[in-house]
Design a protein around this nucleic acid. Structure first.
Lengths: 154, 154
DNA sequence: GGGTATTGTTCAGTGCACCGACGATTTGCT
DNA sequence: AGCAAATCGTCGGTGCACTGAACAATACCC
């Protein structure tokens, strides 16, 4: 009487999905570089010289979290941080040669892992999977800033 | 050259989904009791007197994490911990009256939040959403103990 | 040019999540 | 009965994730 079936709760399922992914990442991709760290490397491969905050936007991490992730990557020599001469508030981020190498290596392994992870679904189902998750996430993200109509700004 | 599209990476999507859920939970359900904490309360409503490790199994948390969650719930007076007289290793867990009240209150709010969270999907799509996530999570979970055929045990 | 608001980073605090190691207890085997 | 193995909880360490507050640098506006 009163207990609920958590398998119909999207939050619970989201947590389980992420745990499952964490497990596979650790065994198939890397034990040193985490998935969020890879996301940061990837963002800097696409757009070298971004500042911290923008990297955070790109990969979906807030200021505090991105600062820690970047600090860890910097400590391992995978990226460099230099003050922006044009704007003394920012740090500009750039991968080192080691960072680019790590990104290349992990890209291959990540692709393999994704195949294993998604193996239970047919190709068509995988597309649906992406679509549904994206729509739910985007909608919730949109509720964050209610007073921002996205098109009209003044 | 070399950067990857993270929107086709299930791990990245899983993280974003959980963040979206976290956001909605905090605004629509509770700022004090978190989603994993609610899962523990729910497990103990369904099966009072479980020990820590079994609760962890039910909600999908390892021993260390479940210990912290339970300690927080205990500190707030939502559950009681007593040594099992039959097995001195275990602690048996039981909700207090406050714990049951909190669970009832949050059950209602959680249902409302789930509706908002899933609103972007049609009813049929919601079923597919659950099914796909469950299948992927279960399969990855199954890779954890490779030598356990689930049916034959000796 | 000077005050105010905004922006980028950091820091403190809380909480989830994992692993590996440890001590205590129970179980199983002989 | 007695020892080895498994089991439950704890502890230490690492890392992600958020909030709110502080601080420095820049931008805006009169």
């Amino acid at each position: 009487m009163g207990a609920v079936d958590l398998t119909t709760h999207p939050g619970h399922l989201a947590r389980r999905l992420q745990q499952a992914h964490y497990l596979l990442w650790n065994t198939m991709v890397s034990e040193e570089i985490t998935s969020p760290q890879f996301a940061v490397l990837n963002a800097l491969v696409a757009e070298p010289g971004l500042d911290q905050r923008t990297v955070g936007d790109r990969v979906g991490l807030d200021r505090s979290t991105i600062a820690e992730v970047i600090s860890r990557l910097g400590r391992r020599g995978l990226l460099d941080k230099v003050r922006d001469p044009q704007d003394g508030r920012r740090f500009l981020l750039r991968l080192t040669e080691d960072g680019r190498r790590a990104h290349r290596r992990l890209t291959v392994r990540t692709a393999r892992m994704n195949q294993v992870f998604l193996a239970p679904l047919s190709a068509a189902e995988q597309d649906v999977f992406f679509d549904l998750i994206r729509r739910v996430s985007d909608a919730a993200e949109g509720l964050r800033n209610p007073g921002e109509p996205l098109a009209a700004k003044g």
